[in-house]
C-alpha cells in the first residue's frame, strides 16, 4: 500500500478556514490527507502545537493565515510569521526536513489555493516519506525496555550490560 501522509492543518477562522469552506461550496476536489483544526487567528498557533502534531504522528503540518496586511486581527499573521520563521530553523536543526512544515497565506476568497496547496503539500510529503515520530519514539526507547524488565523482575541478579 502506498504511503498516505497525515497532514495536520491549523487554519485561521477568517481567511484560510473560510477559504476551505469556499473550496467545499465550490466542490473543488483535493487530497483527503488533511485534518483541519480551526483557530480564530494563525497567531493562536503556538510552536508547541506544531511540534506536538509531529510528535503525535503528523507527517506534515500546514499553517494557514490571512495574507500580510489582511489579518482580521490587524497583525496576528505577522506575529505568526516571525515566530514560525524561528520555529522553522529549530525544526531544521532537529532534523525535520524542509517541506514538512509549511506556512501559507490563503484569503477567504482563495478556495482554489486551498486545493492547490493541500495537493502540493501532500505530494511533497509523500515524496519525503513517513515521519512517524511515535514509531521513532518507540524505536528509541527499545534500548531501555529490556533492562527495565530485567531490573524489575523478582530475582535481579547481575545485569549483563553487553548487548
Amino acid at each position: 500500500m502506498s504511503f498516505e501522509p497525515k497532514i495536520v492543518a491549523f487554519f485561521c477562522n477568517w481567511c484560510t478556514y473560510t477559504a476551505a469552506d469556499l473550496a467545499g461550496v465550490s466542490r473543488l476536489k483535493y487530497a483527503p490527507n488533511v485534518r483541519v483544526i480551526r483557530v480564530m487567528c494563525s497567531g493562536r498557533v503556538d510552536p508547541q502545537f506544531v511540534m506536538d502534531a509531529f510528535a503525535k504522528g503528523a507527517d506534515g503540518v500546514l499553517l494557514g493565515g490571512c495574507h500580510p496586511g489582511d489579518c482580521h486581527y490587524a497583525e496576528g499573521n505577522y506575529k505568526t510569521l516571525r515566530r514560525m520563521r524561528m520555529l522553522n530553523r529549530m525544526l531544521k536543526d532537529m532534523g525535520i526536513e524542509d517541506g514538512r512544515f509549511r506556512l501559507e497565506w490563503i484569503s477567504g476568497a482563495e478556495g482554489e489555493k486551498v486545493k492547490v496547496t493541500v495537493n502540493d503539500m501532500v505530494a511533497k510529503v509523500r515524496a519525503l516519506g513517513p515521519l512517524d515520530m511515535p514509531g521513532k519514539f518507540k524505536e528509541w526507547d527499545k534500548e531501555i525496555e529490556e533492562l527495565e524488565a530485567h531490573v524489575n523482575s523478582d530475582a535481579p541478579t547481575e545485569v549483563a550490560h553487553a548487548r
Binding site: 483557530v39 487567528c41 497567531g43 493562536r44 506575529k79
Partner: peptide, 26 residues
C-alpha cells in the same frame, strides 16, 4: 476580540483563550 495571539505567546502559559485553551487544542 479573541484572536488568541497572547495566549499563544505567554511564555509561562498564564493566559487562557476561552474555547481555544491549550488542552483543548492539544
Amino acid at each position: 476580540k479573541g484572536c488568541g495571539v497572547c495566549a499563544a505567546a505567554c511564555p509561562s502559559g498564564s493566559i487562557r483563550q476561552n474555547l481555544f485553551e491549550d488542552e483543548e487544542i492539544f
